[in-house]
Design a protein around this nucleic acid. Structure first.
Lengths: 180, 180
DNA sequence: ACCAAAATGTTCAGTATCGTACAAAAATGA
DNA sequence: TCATTTTTGTACGATACTGAACATTTTGGT
């Protein structure tokens, strides 16, 4: 992608994220985003149709970054020692998420938080699908998957919005303990 | 000026300033500036001929910002209570300089520091000219002006490079005491 | 309910930046 | 010394951004 596009995209993302930290998604105006990003009006609309599509694009960008290197491939797709490898996978994902904490902090506020969580869970479901089913045998696998996905998403929200000081390893271990 | 020009100009200034903090002016390459600023090669040369002209432009920009609102006008050009108004003027200038401390820190390193000091003194001479002559009567006015200019420039260097924690008021009072 | 102000979304000509290529000069190192 | 790499400066077509204008819609206050 053209260097100019990257820059304006980042400027818009950052401005939007900053606004989200102090205003609700609904109350934010395109004009404010434009001003914050310091780009022309026509430039904004050349990138995004609406606030909503901007939000979606931000989520997609983050997920693409976080889930890009498919860990299940890296680890040789071997989850015979299920628990341990799964925790490593989680930790790795948390590291990637931590890189985006600045944007995430804004995203996770208010309504936008719910929208983000929705998208996030879609990705998580796919990512957890294989692994989670090997952790429990007494409960319906689909139920376990559902709960694991929700729990992890909520763990992230708790971490990013208020408790940034924990390390990815700590969070991962808390999460593993919780879902066991 | 076009918004795009402002952005690239700032990007180049920042990159250059950052480089100056860890390398000497002479050892810095245009390529490094380009990479640091994240702009295209042709874009750099559309703005500046050489490293040297970039340095000069940076100085000019800062001085224009620092000396733009002519304090001698603001204060009604009245220096009958010489000492006091002069100190206020100094303080105000120091505040403006403090705004640029990030760029100044880099500029004041190595050879670029000397070049900056040269330009800076030119501006200072003009700025001090009227005021300084009313402070001392036993010494040749031109001598006092020369020493005041050099002393202030060196005071700035001392402040920015190593002792950022002092306030403009403190620095101003130190300087006033020193040249009295 | 009304009006003024602000926000929206679109269009378009002008311009700055991009990316690439290229030849020449300078630096590096063997 | 010679060869290799890096840097320099310039050129140019393609393209993203700008800024301004405009009609329309939404907002906020009286």
């Amino acid at each position: 992608m053209d260097r100019r596009q990257q820059k304006t995209r980042k400027a818009i993302f950052d401005a939007f994220s900053t606004l989200l930290e102090r205003k609700s998604f609904g109350s934010i105006t395109v004009q404010e985003i434009i001003d914050g990003a310091n780009v022309g009006r026509s430039t904004f609309y050349a990138h995004f149709e609406t606030k909503e599509s901007l939000l979606e694009a931000m989520c997609t960008d983050i997920f693409q970054h976080v889930f890009s290197d498919d860990l299940r491939q890296e680890n040789g797709h071997d989850f015979s020692h299920a628990g341990h490898d799964f925790e490593k996978e989680i930790t790795h994902i948390l590291y990637h998420l931590q890189d985006n904490r600045k944007n995430l902090k804004g995203l996770l506020s208010c309504e936008s938080g719910e929208i983000f969580m929705g998208y996030f869970k879609e990705y998580l479901r796919e990512m957890f699908s294989d692994s989670v089913k090997k952790l429990h045998y007494t409960l319906p696998p689909e139920y376990v998957l559902h709960m694991a996905v929700c729990s992890f998403a909520e763990t992230l929200r708790w971490w990013i919005t208020e408790h940034n000081d924990y390390t990815p390893e700590q969070i991962a271990s808390y999460f593993m303990e919780y879902i066991s």
